[in-house]
Protein backbone atom coordinates (compact mmCIF):
# COMPACT_ATOMS: atom_id res chain seq x y z
CA UNK A 1 0.00 0.00 0.00
CA UNK A 2 2.88 2.34 0.76
CA UNK A 3 4.35 1.45 -2.59
CA UNK A 4 1.05 2.20 -4.26
CA UNK A 5 0.89 5.56 -2.54
CA UNK A 6 4.41 6.31 -3.66
CA UNK A 7 3.52 5.44 -7.22
CA UNK A 8 0.34 7.40 -7.44
CA UNK A 9 1.07 10.52 -5.50
CA UNK A 10 4.08 11.94 -7.35
CA UNK A 11 2.14 11.45 -10.57
CA UNK A 12 -0.88 13.34 -9.40
CA UNK A 13 0.39 15.93 -7.03
CA UNK A 14 4.12 16.08 -6.48
CA UNK A 15 4.82 16.56 -10.13
CA UNK A 16 2.12 19.12 -10.42
CA UNK A 17 3.35 21.20 -7.54
CA UNK A 18 6.94 20.71 -8.50
CA UNK A 19 6.49 21.58 -12.16
CA UNK A 20 6.36 25.34 -11.93
CA UNK A 21 8.93 25.52 -9.20
CA UNK A 22 11.51 23.39 -10.93
CA UNK A 23 11.20 25.39 -14.11
CA UNK A 24 11.61 28.55 -12.21
CA UNK A 25 14.83 27.37 -10.71
CA UNK A 26 16.14 26.36 -14.07
CA UNK A 27 15.16 29.31 -16.20
CA UNK A 28 13.59 31.68 -13.74
CA UNK A 29 10.67 32.06 -16.04
CA UNK A 30 7.59 29.97 -15.93
CA UNK A 31 6.87 27.77 -18.81
CA UNK A 32 3.63 26.16 -17.89
CA UNK A 33 3.33 23.74 -20.74
CA UNK A 34 6.60 22.06 -19.84
CA UNK A 35 7.74 21.05 -16.41
CA UNK A 36 5.73 17.94 -15.79
CA UNK A 37 8.02 15.51 -17.57
CA UNK A 38 10.06 12.62 -16.38
CA UNK A 39 13.50 14.20 -15.83
CA UNK A 40 11.83 16.42 -13.27
CA UNK A 41 11.10 13.40 -11.16
CA UNK A 42 14.79 13.11 -10.45
CA UNK A 43 14.95 16.79 -9.59
CA UNK A 44 11.99 16.20 -7.40
CA UNK A 45 13.86 13.40 -5.68
CA UNK A 46 16.91 15.50 -4.83
CA UNK A 47 14.77 18.38 -3.72
CA UNK A 48 12.63 16.23 -1.53
CA UNK A 49 15.70 14.53 -0.06
CA UNK A 50 17.12 17.88 1.02
CA UNK A 51 13.71 18.86 2.19
CA UNK A 52 13.26 15.74 4.30
CA UNK A 53 16.63 16.34 5.91
CA UNK A 54 15.30 19.74 6.89
CA UNK A 55 17.42 21.71 4.45
CA UNK A 56 15.08 24.19 2.83
CA UNK A 57 17.69 26.72 1.86
CA UNK A 58 18.17 30.28 3.08
CA UNK A 59 15.69 33.09 2.72
CA UNK A 60 16.88 35.98 0.55
CA UNK A 61 15.01 38.50 2.59
CA UNK A 62 15.51 37.35 6.17
CA UNK A 63 19.01 35.96 5.53
CA UNK A 64 18.31 33.00 7.74
CA UNK A 65 17.18 29.40 7.15
CA UNK A 66 13.73 29.06 5.69
CA UNK A 67 12.64 26.02 7.69
CA UNK A 68 11.56 27.71 10.98
CA UNK A 69 9.41 30.23 9.10
CA UNK A 70 7.72 27.52 7.06
CA UNK A 71 7.11 25.27 10.06
CA UNK A 72 5.65 28.13 12.13
CA UNK A 73 3.45 29.25 9.28
CA UNK A 74 2.28 25.73 8.54
CA UNK A 75 1.31 25.26 12.19
CA UNK A 76 -0.72 28.46 12.13
CA UNK A 77 -2.44 27.55 8.88
CA UNK A 78 -3.26 24.11 10.20
CA UNK A 79 -4.99 25.68 13.18
CA UNK A 80 -7.07 27.86 10.90
CA UNK A 81 -7.86 25.03 8.51
CA UNK A 82 -8.70 22.74 11.43
CA UNK A 83 -11.23 25.21 12.80
CA UNK A 84 -12.80 25.56 9.35
CA UNK A 85 -12.94 21.80 8.81
CA UNK A 86 -14.25 20.99 12.26
CA UNK A 87 -17.07 23.43 11.62
CA UNK A 88 -17.82 22.62 8.02
CA UNK A 89 -17.65 18.83 7.80
CA UNK A 90 -20.44 18.00 10.27
CA UNK A 91 -22.57 20.99 9.37
CA UNK A 92 -22.07 20.49 5.63
CA UNK A 93 -22.96 16.82 5.81
CA UNK A 94 -25.91 17.54 8.06
CA UNK A 95 -27.10 20.21 5.62
CA UNK A 96 -26.84 17.81 2.70
CA UNK A 97 -28.61 15.03 4.58
CA UNK A 98 -31.43 17.31 5.69
CA UNK A 99 -31.80 18.62 2.14
CA UNK A 100 -31.97 15.10 0.73
CA UNK A 101 -34.53 13.94 3.30
CA UNK A 102 -36.67 16.96 2.37
CA UNK A 103 -36.08 16.62 -1.34
CA UNK A 104 -37.66 19.42 -3.41
CA UNK A 105 -39.36 20.89 -0.36
CA UNK A 106 -38.63 24.48 0.71
CA UNK A 107 -35.94 23.41 3.21
CA UNK A 108 -34.05 21.61 0.44
CA UNK A 109 -34.36 24.66 -1.82
CA UNK A 110 -33.01 26.95 0.89
CA UNK A 111 -30.04 24.73 1.70
CA UNK A 112 -29.17 24.00 -1.94
CA UNK A 113 -29.57 27.53 -3.26
CA UNK A 114 -28.00 29.14 -0.21
CA UNK A 115 -25.08 26.73 -0.31
CA UNK A 116 -24.58 27.34 -4.00
CA UNK A 117 -24.70 31.11 -3.64
CA UNK A 118 -22.13 31.32 -0.86
CA UNK A 119 -19.88 28.82 -2.60
CA UNK A 120 -19.46 30.92 -5.71
CA UNK A 121 -18.48 34.09 -3.84
CA UNK A 122 -14.78 34.95 -3.50
CA UNK A 123 -13.51 34.46 0.06
CA UNK A 124 -12.45 38.05 0.49
CA UNK A 125 -15.93 39.26 -0.40
CA UNK A 126 -17.65 37.08 2.18
CA UNK A 127 -14.74 37.85 4.51
CA UNK A 128 -15.28 41.61 4.23
CA UNK A 129 -19.02 41.30 4.73
CA UNK A 130 -18.54 39.04 7.77
CA UNK A 131 -15.94 41.40 9.23
CA UNK A 132 -18.39 44.26 8.84
CA UNK A 133 -21.25 42.38 10.46
CA UNK A 134 -19.51 40.59 13.33
CA UNK A 135 -16.39 42.70 13.80
CA UNK A 136 -17.42 46.27 13.11
CA UNK A 137 -21.17 46.48 13.73
CA UNK A 138 -21.88 43.83 16.33
CA UNK A 139 -18.35 43.84 17.78
CA UNK A 140 -18.65 40.17 18.70
CA UNK A 141 -15.43 38.97 17.16
CA UNK A 142 -11.96 40.47 16.64
CA UNK A 143 -11.32 41.66 13.07
CA UNK A 144 -7.73 40.46 12.95
CA UNK A 145 -6.53 36.93 13.52
CA UNK A 146 -3.39 38.04 15.35
CA UNK A 147 -4.05 37.02 18.93
CA UNK A 148 -2.13 38.47 21.89
CA UNK A 149 1.08 36.71 22.83
CA UNK A 150 0.82 33.60 25.01
CA UNK A 151 -2.89 33.37 24.32
CA UNK A 152 -4.46 30.15 25.52
CA UNK A 153 -6.29 27.65 23.39
CA UNK A 154 -9.71 29.24 23.74
CA UNK A 155 -8.47 32.75 23.06
CA UNK A 156 -6.80 31.51 19.89
CA UNK A 157 -9.98 29.73 18.94
CA UNK A 158 -11.95 32.92 19.53
CA UNK A 159 -9.64 34.81 17.17
CA UNK A 160 -9.88 32.11 14.52
CA UNK A 161 -13.67 31.93 14.23
CA UNK A 162 -14.07 34.92 11.94
CA UNK A 163 -11.24 33.99 9.53
CA UNK A 164 -12.50 30.44 9.26
CA UNK A 165 -16.06 31.50 8.36
CA UNK A 166 -15.36 32.50 4.72
CA UNK A 167 -13.61 29.15 4.18
CA UNK A 168 -16.56 27.50 5.87
CA UNK A 169 -19.00 29.16 3.49
CA UNK A 170 -17.15 28.12 0.35
CA UNK A 171 -16.71 24.53 1.52
CA UNK A 172 -20.24 24.22 2.88
CA UNK A 173 -21.80 24.40 -0.57
CA UNK A 174 -19.57 21.69 -2.00
CA UNK A 175 -19.88 19.30 0.90
CA UNK A 176 -23.62 19.78 1.30
CA UNK A 177 -24.15 19.24 -2.42
CA UNK A 178 -22.12 16.02 -2.45
CA UNK A 179 -23.80 14.72 0.69
CA UNK A 180 -27.19 15.58 -0.79
CA UNK A 181 -26.64 13.77 -4.09
CA UNK A 182 -25.03 10.82 -2.30
CA UNK A 183 -28.05 10.59 -0.01
CA UNK A 184 -30.53 10.83 -2.87
CA UNK A 185 -28.78 8.04 -4.69
CA UNK A 186 -28.55 5.84 -1.60
CA UNK A 187 -32.20 6.45 -0.65
CA UNK A 188 -33.20 5.37 -4.13
CA UNK A 189 -31.18 2.15 -4.11
CA UNK A 190 -32.25 -1.46 -3.91
CA UNK A 191 -30.55 -2.14 -0.59
CA UNK A 192 -32.45 0.70 1.04
CA UNK A 193 -35.71 -0.64 -0.29
CA UNK A 194 -34.79 -4.11 0.96
CA UNK A 195 -33.97 -2.71 4.38
CA UNK A 196 -37.27 -0.85 4.54
CA UNK A 197 -39.21 -3.90 3.37
CA UNK A 198 -37.45 -6.04 5.96
CA UNK A 199 -39.34 -3.90 8.43
CA UNK A 200 -36.35 -2.14 9.93
CA UNK A 201 -37.16 1.14 11.66
CA UNK A 202 -36.59 4.19 9.42
CA UNK A 203 -33.94 5.52 11.79
CA UNK A 204 -31.91 2.31 11.57
CA UNK A 205 -32.21 2.27 7.81
CA UNK A 206 -30.88 5.82 7.61
CA UNK A 207 -28.00 5.24 10.00
CA UNK A 208 -26.91 1.75 9.01
CA UNK A 209 -27.68 1.59 5.34
CA UNK A 210 -28.09 4.99 3.78
CA UNK A 211 -25.57 7.21 5.52
CA UNK A 212 -22.66 4.84 5.18
CA UNK A 213 -23.03 4.63 1.44
CA UNK A 214 -24.05 8.20 0.94
CA UNK A 215 -21.02 9.66 2.66
CA UNK A 216 -18.37 7.84 0.67
CA UNK A 217 -18.20 10.32 -2.22
CA UNK A 218 -18.40 13.15 0.27
CA UNK A 219 -15.14 12.05 1.87
CA UNK A 220 -13.38 12.25 -1.47
CA UNK A 221 -14.74 15.73 -2.02
CA UNK A 222 -13.53 16.84 1.38
CA UNK A 223 -10.03 15.63 0.53
CA UNK A 224 -9.94 17.31 -2.85
CA UNK A 225 -11.08 20.52 -1.21
CA UNK A 226 -7.77 20.73 0.64
CA UNK A 227 -6.35 21.82 -2.69
CA UNK A 228 -8.87 24.58 -2.85
CA UNK A 229 -8.37 25.38 0.82
CA UNK A 230 -4.73 26.23 0.19
CA UNK A 231 -5.69 28.81 -2.40
CA UNK A 232 -8.31 30.13 -0.02
CA UNK A 233 -5.78 30.38 2.80
CA UNK A 234 -3.61 32.72 0.76
CA UNK A 235 -6.51 35.15 0.48
CA UNK A 236 -7.90 34.75 3.98
CA UNK A 237 -4.54 35.02 5.71
CA UNK A 238 -3.80 38.19 3.80
CA UNK A 239 -7.19 39.65 4.65
CA UNK A 240 -6.90 38.83 8.35
CA UNK A 241 -3.16 39.46 8.61
CA UNK A 242 -2.54 35.96 9.83
CA UNK A 243 0.98 34.49 9.75
CA UNK A 244 0.18 31.28 7.92
CA UNK A 245 1.60 29.40 4.98
CA UNK A 246 -0.62 31.29 2.55
CA UNK A 247 0.58 34.69 3.62
CA UNK A 248 4.14 33.32 3.70
CA UNK A 249 3.87 32.33 0.04
CA UNK A 250 2.22 35.64 -0.77
CA UNK A 251 4.96 37.68 0.89
CA UNK A 252 7.67 35.51 -0.63
CA UNK A 253 6.17 35.96 -4.09
CA UNK A 254 5.98 39.72 -3.69
CA UNK A 255 9.55 39.91 -2.40
CA UNK A 256 10.87 37.38 -4.94
CA UNK A 257 12.21 35.29 -2.09
CA UNK A 258 12.60 32.08 -4.10
CA UNK A 259 13.82 29.61 -1.46
CA UNK A 260 10.96 30.66 0.78
CA UNK A 261 8.48 30.48 -2.10
CA UNK A 262 9.66 27.04 -3.22
CA UNK A 263 9.63 25.59 0.26
CA UNK A 264 6.20 27.00 0.95
CA UNK A 265 4.78 25.55 -2.24
CA UNK A 266 6.45 22.19 -1.74
CA UNK A 267 5.09 22.10 1.80
CA UNK A 268 1.52 22.60 0.64
CA UNK A 269 2.14 20.00 -2.06
CA UNK A 270 3.03 17.51 0.65
CA UNK A 271 0.04 18.50 2.74
CA UNK A 272 -2.17 17.96 -0.28
CA UNK A 273 -0.61 14.57 -0.96
CA UNK A 274 -1.05 13.47 2.64
CA UNK A 275 -4.67 14.61 2.61
CA UNK A 276 -5.32 12.62 -0.54
CA UNK A 277 -3.69 9.56 0.99
CA UNK A 278 -5.75 9.85 4.16
CA UNK A 279 -8.90 10.19 2.09
CA UNK A 280 -8.06 7.06 0.10
CA UNK A 281 -7.38 5.22 3.32
CA UNK A 282 -10.62 6.36 4.95
CA UNK A 283 -12.51 5.47 1.83
CA UNK A 284 -11.20 1.92 1.86
CA UNK A 285 -11.88 1.55 5.59
CA UNK A 286 -15.46 2.72 5.21
CA UNK A 287 -16.26 0.87 2.02
CA UNK A 288 -16.22 -2.88 2.60
CA UNK A 289 -16.23 -3.53 -1.13
CA UNK A 290 -12.71 -2.21 -1.58
CA UNK A 291 -11.36 -3.02 1.84
CA UNK A 292 -7.83 -4.04 0.94
CA UNK A 293 -6.62 -7.54 1.63
CA UNK A 294 -9.97 -8.72 2.92
CA UNK A 295 -10.50 -11.10 0.03
CA UNK A 296 -7.55 -13.29 0.86
Amino acid sequence: MVFLGGQVLPGNVGRAILGPFADQRAVDALNHTLGVDRPLLTQYATWIWNFVRGDMGTSYIFRSPVAPFVIDALGNSMKLAAVAFVLVVPIGILGGVIAALNLNRPLDRIISLGGLSVTVLPEFVTGIILILIFGVWLRWLPISAAWPKNAGFFTQLYYLILPSLPLFLVLFGYIARMARSGMIEALDSDYTRTAVLKGLPWRTVIWRHVLRNALLPTITVIATQTGYLIGGLVVIETLFRYQGIGSLIFTAARGKDFPMLESGILTIGIVYAVATLIADFLYSVLNPRIRLGSDQ
Binding site: H32, T33, V36, G227, Y228, I230, V234, A253, L261
Partner: peptide, 23 residues
Protein backbone atom coordinates in the same frame (compact mmCIF):
# COMPACT_ATOMS: atom_id res chain seq x y z
CA UNK B 1 -4.46 14.22 -20.04
CA UNK B 2 -1.75 13.58 -17.44
CA UNK B 3 -0.33 17.06 -18.00
CA UNK B 4 -3.78 18.61 -17.74
CA UNK B 5 -4.54 16.69 -14.53
CA UNK B 6 -1.30 17.94 -13.04
CA UNK B 7 -2.38 21.48 -13.88
CA UNK B 8 -5.74 21.04 -12.24
CA UNK B 9 -4.11 20.02 -8.96
CA UNK B 10 -2.56 23.48 -8.44
CA UNK B 11 -4.79 26.24 -7.06
CA UNK B 12 -5.20 29.16 -9.48
CA UNK B 13 -3.98 31.61 -6.87
CA UNK B 14 -0.67 29.76 -6.57
CA UNK B 15 -0.19 29.53 -10.35
CA UNK B 16 -0.95 33.23 -10.56
CA UNK B 17 1.53 34.10 -7.81
CA UNK B 18 4.29 32.20 -9.62
CA UNK B 19 3.40 33.58 -13.04
CA UNK B 20 3.34 37.11 -11.74
CA UNK B 21 6.71 36.66 -10.07
CA UNK B 22 8.09 35.45 -13.38
CA UNK B 23 6.23 37.68 -15.84
Amino acid sequence: SRILEAFMAIPVVIVALLAIVAL
